[in-house]
Design a binder for these strands. Structure first.
Length: 460
RNA sequence: GGCGGGAUGGCAGAAUGGCUAUGCAGCGGAUUGCAAAUCCGUGGAUCUCGGUUCGACUCCGGGUCCCGCCUCCA
């Protein structure tokens, strides 16, 4: 029985899909004007894990994650680079896909782009005007009339009066109310523009998501996710737009993941305290980043530090060591209580840290059983791998992970040659030489393990 | 100012009204030529002050501190 925390009601709720057995989920993806940072990585990993677990639970999941490929920042960056905005976005979409793959994130079922959704966006704006929720200003912009939507503020717990009291929105003479937000922006000279009933222009950011989610999933769907910072105003506006246009309930359950922090401050572009996924991949494997993300609950803040990535590496090494050298069956033949514990943890609002604890318990069992009951050890290893895979972990071959430190690989011949030399020295009981070689390898960040007359190695 | 989240052992991080995860690091032992890996054992925690209770880290109230949203943001 899956329970999920719903930001809309601020409670954990029993998850009940609109259509039994099916889940329709939309997550706000990237605005592709730059490389993904760790904050983006968290969204990718969290909702990938949600999707994987729901599928593991037997749901037929349709997972949509959009791409915002037209907005102010994209235009600004393209101008800086003196390139076509489409060239820019294409490059960063590619980069995002590469990063996602490194993190073990599966592609969503569909990945709609704003620029491919203009018809849907325009017709939604037309509906909003027709329904009295939007107005075209004399400058060619179209705005949403916030006061026309009675429950505005329901998701973020805000009231229009409070928002006005803390006025931080620049007054715009074209708006009826400073809190009104733009649905369609009239094009300035030399800006990318699309034809519309209000002249050439481009969509506002909020309407893009309303249009892309609705066109892929229908007017009413199960789950909408994204980073906590999107709750207001982005998701609040989406509700106002979609419900204002369709007259139907938009989303049953809203999920928001917590921020990644650096030194207890939100990681963000504006604070310029971010690490890109690529930078970290120079030092750590993608799976280590994924483990780091999943080690804490998705709604908690996640502080970044090298030390925590090191811990993630040590932890994964322990898990892979348990599988190492075993011919793990692809299908586990046993019913194991571990699976029930794992499911119970994940059913409780995706408690991944408790689910990971189950993995370590299994790893311990595998290690203990290796000698006394190899068959059972294999079966337990099969369960370990299966459950870890639900989290997108332990998908690699153990040797590949353990010997595959980030950016390494062309020194394998040298390593194996040194190991052979050491084996020869050991055969002659020349311990000094054997230890010297081991120290030399250690200096290369290679750790050795002598086992049954053989020597295996891994990167430290 | 308005609204919201949080404070758990050296670090990270779960959980439950009573049985105190898990990982990393530490310590002792087994194993090893010595290590490593592994196994066995082990120390150490619930911000503060009140209250409810037979019993609270867990529920309630006050305080302190931290963080986020209210503007683009995953």
């Amino acid at each position: 029985m899956l329970h999920i925390y719903n930001s809309l009601t601020r409670k954990k709720e029993l998850f009940t899909p609109i259509e039994p057995g099916k889940v329709k989920m939309y997550v706000c993806g990237m605005t592709v004007y730059d490389l993904c940072h760790l904050g983006h990585a968290r969204v990718l990993v969290v909702f990938d894990t949600v999707t994987r677990y729901m599928r593991h639970s037997g749901y037929d999941v349709t997972y949509i994650r959009n791409i915002t490929d037209i907005d102010d920042k994209i235009i600004a960056r393209a101008n800086e680079n003196a390139e076509e905005f489409g060239v820019l976005t294409h490059r960063f979409i590619q980069a995002m896909h590469e990063d996602a793959a490194e993190l073990g994130v599966l592609p969503p079922d569909e990945e709609p782009k704003a620029t491919s959704s203009m018809d849907d966006i325009i017709s939604m704006i037309e509906m909003l005007i027709k329904n009295g929720h939007a107005y075209a200003a004399d400058n060619g912009d179209v705005y949403y009339d916030v006061s026309s939507f009675e429950t505005y503020g329901q998701l973020s717990g805000k009231h229009l009066e409070d928002l006005r009291a803390g006025e931080r929105v620049a007054v715009d003479p074209h708006k009826d109310d400073p809190l009104d937000f733009v649905l369609w922006k009239a094009a300035k000279p030399d800006e990318p523009a699309w034809d519309s009933p209000w002249g050439k222009g481009r969509p506002g950011w909020h309407i893009e998501c309303s249009a892309m989610s609705t066109c892929c999933l229908g007017n009413h769907f199960d789950i909408h996710g994204g980073g906590q910072d999107l709750q207001f105003p982005h998701h609040e506006n989406e509700i106002a737009q979609s419900e204002g246009a369709t007259g139907e309930k938009f989303v049953n359950l809203w999920m928001h993941n917590g921020f990644v922090r650096i030194n207890d401050e939100k990681m963000s572009k504006s604070l310029d305290n971010f690490f890109t996924v690529r930078e970290i991949l120079k030092l750590y494997q993608g799976e280590e980043i994924r483990y780091f993300v999943l080690a804490s609950h998705y709604r908690s803040p996640l502080n970044y530090s090298d030390q925590l990535l090191d811990t993630a590496r040590s932890s994964l090494t322990r898990l892979y060591n348990a599988l190492r050298g075993l011919d793990v069956p692809s299908v586990s033949l046993i019913e194991d209580e571990a699976e029930a514990k794992f499911n119970k943890a994940m059913d409780d609002d995706f408690n991944t840290s408790e689910a990971i604890a189950v993995l370590f318990d299994l790893a311990g069992q595998v290690n203990r059983l290796r000698e006394e009951n190899p068959d059972m050890a294999l079966q337990k290893a099969g369960v370990l791998k299966k459950l870890a895979n639900v989290l997108g972990l332990l998908e690699a071959d153990p040797e590949t992970y353990l010997q595959g430190g980030a950016g390494e690989g062309d020194d394998v011949e040298q390593i194996e040659s040194l190991i052979q030399q050491r084996l020869d020295a050991r055969a002659n009981k020349d311990w000094a030489e054997a230890d010297r070689i081991r120290d030399e390898l250690h200096a290369m960040n290679i750790e050795l393990e002598d086992k049954d007359g053989r020597t295996i190695w891994r990167r430290g």
